[in-house]
Design a protein around this nucleic acid. Structure first.
Lengths: 120, 120
DNA sequence: TTTATCACTATACTTTTGTATAGTATAGAT
DNA sequence: ATCTATACTATACAAAAGTATAGTGATAAA
């Protein structure tokens, strides 16, 4: 069951594809999105954990980005009513799969660096 | 010959990977990079062709982005000294392979949309 | 009672990114 | 001499993204 055709095999990029690419870009672009996702993936789930893991991020940016990531369905925000209240951010199932995108980005980036150095 | 390990199998993201991801992001993020690359890929090679293909882009943005893409080794700028001078922009070999990144971005984007709609 | 922690919010500001509009240099055609 | 085309550049401006710094409210510990 073929889910979609590679854009290299398509005459003109369909609107669905454009939307899909934009959705993906929204999740990974900007200065802090990837550091935050990486931090959560590597085991930091609470606000303070993430903040001290990414030293240079300001609280404003951290909460802004967390909100956006939640809105985009990449992470969940879970409130535990202990005292003091504990809040945990975790990747959604779909969110975790973003790693497959990062993998090809790494692959292309490494290969491109190599190719560019060779021709210079 | 294994070229790299998936970041999901690695304890901490190596600096090389971070650089590779940033290289890739630099090539695809911003308002006009992908439209320009798509335009070239679909057969528009001259400044005016690309400009009229992307109606809303201003000449400033087009030349700025073309310069950056050239600098990043994704496209080449070829000058033919006919009169009037003809200039052609073309994808580099390495640049064309960015399609593999777009493919997984489309794949993730479509699947994520589906998953997000189902859980709402 | 003062101090500390958690998870933020508020306000003002700077930097980066993108827009609007006009102009340039070279050359050929009329 | 004027008009057109190509491939841009220059200047000023607006909008978006990110930074700096201080403060909030609830609770608990010393």
């Amino acid at each position: 069951m073929i889910e979609f055709e590679s854009i290299s095999e398509v005459k003109k990029c369909p609107k669905q594809y454009v939307l899909a690419i934009n959705d993906t870009l929204n999740v990974i672009s900007g200065k802090w999105k990837l550091p935050i996702l990486a931090s959560i993936l590597y085991g930091n789930h609470r606000y303070k954990d993430i903040q001290s893991n990414i030293e240079k991020i300001t609280p404003r940016m951290l909460s802004k980005e967390l909100k956006e990531l939640e809105l985009n369905g990449v992470i969940t925000r879970n409130v535990y009513d202990s005292t003091p209240v504990r809040i945990e951010y975790r990747m959604t199932e779909s969110g975790e799969k973003i790693l497959s995108v990062l993998d090809v980005m790494i692959e292309w980036g490494l290969a491109h660096r190599k190719a560019t150095l060779e021709n210079s």
